[in-house]
């Protein structure tokens, strides 16, 4: 299937600062795509190019195989990190205004606003001024404004920052629902736990370059260290060139250990070796979290 978005060799320079350096990756249709990177890595610059706020100096962006064009604005919903609303405007009017700017007609917009307001429990507030709303409710309004025109591609920059856990859950469920309906979501964040929960694919940008890309599983597999966590009863004494003990602890008759396999060795060999000597209660592979991978990549780059 054709990717919904293809970034091809995009570079952007501001004065002395290189914001993006030949970044390329594809965003598969119907996925939740995590765009990761530390602050100042170039995420926002890239998003501003995708949303056509700025243009790239080099390279191009394809939307469904077509070079980006002004009419694509209708197909994209964007929730920026720096987001707000007109404080002195009524919630309903404001949503209609933002929807019309994205090319919807008034009647359509009003109808969909009603549906969304009911879904997110905002119906009583449509006639209130934005400044009378709590921050959480304002964020719901912003979310509605982003998805109202039923975009094919949704770009959310730090969507959960500032949400309380309850509202964050509501929004997460809505995002998952939208994905089921065929919407593609790009998540820009440096909060890794939400990436782990939601993303199918990720790309990481560090210091204006893409440093990693792939499906979540692939990336994790790539960063496997063949390390296993073992717990059990007995006294473990590993004396084999095939295994390397990274850490070990003894609590009375209980032990806990982290053991790394040498490249040619499989986990079953370790298990067999263990069951001959101790009673194993718990045996699992230590998979690196996205957080670990993120920190590892960023610090490596910084030193190398």
């Amino acid at each position: 299937m054709q990717p919904i978005l293809q970034i091809q060799g995009v570079s952007k320079r501001y004065e002395a600062h290189q914001a993006l350096d030949k970044v390329s990756f594809d965003v598969p249709k119907g996925s939740i795509f995590g765009l990761l990177g530390p602050n100042g890595a170039g995420k926002t610059s890239l998003i501003r190019i995708i949303t056509q706020i700025t243009a790239p100096d080099e390279g191009r962006v394809l939307f469904e195989g077509q070079p980006l064009q002004p009419h694509h604005i209708k197909e994209i919903g964007y929730l920026p990190e720096e987001r707000g609303l007109y404080k002195k405007m009524k919630v309903g009017e404001q949503l209609v205004y933002l929807a019309r700017l994205r090319g919807m007609d008034k009647a359509d917009a009003t109808q969909r606003i009603k549906t969304w307001a009911e879904r997110l429990d905002l119906k009583a507030w449509l006639n209130k001024n934005v400044e009378d709303l709590s921050k959480g409710m304002q964020q719901k309004v912003q979310f509605i404004a982003t998805v109202l025109h039923e975009p094919k591609l949704l770009i959310l920059d730090e969507p959960f920052s500032g949400f309380d856990p309850v509202n964050a859950n509501i929004i997460r469920d809505e995002i998952l629902k939208l994905r089921e309906q065929g919407c593609t979501v790009i998540f820009s964040t440096h909060r890794m736990e939400s990436v782990e929960q939601m993303c199918d694919y990720i790309a990481m940008i560090n210091r204006s370059r893409k440093v990693m890309e792939g499906s979540l599983k692939e990336v994790k597999a790539r960063y496997r260290s063949h390390t296993y966590h073992v717990e059990g009863t007995g006294r473990l004494l590993v004396m084999s060139p095939d295994f390397k003990v990274l850490a070990q602890a003894q609590h009375g008759s209980q032990f806990e250990a982290e053991i790394q396999l040498e490249p040619q060795v499989g986990p079953n060999q370790l298990l067999r070796y263990l069951t001959d000597r101790v009673e194993v209660h718990n045996f699992r592979e230590k998979v690196p979290s996205i957080n670990d991978i993120f920190i590892q990549t960023v610090t490596q780059e910084a030193h190398g």
């Binding site: 056509q52 720096e82 987001r83 707000g84 609303l85 933002l98 994205r102 912003q142």
Partner: peptide, 16 residues
């Protein structure tokens, strides 16, 4: 300035 302080501008310029 009001638009700037209320942080509405980035939402706006993605459609206008």
């Amino acid at each position: 300035i009001e638009e700037k302080t209320s942080r509405i501008l980035e939402v706006m310029v993605s459609s206008v």
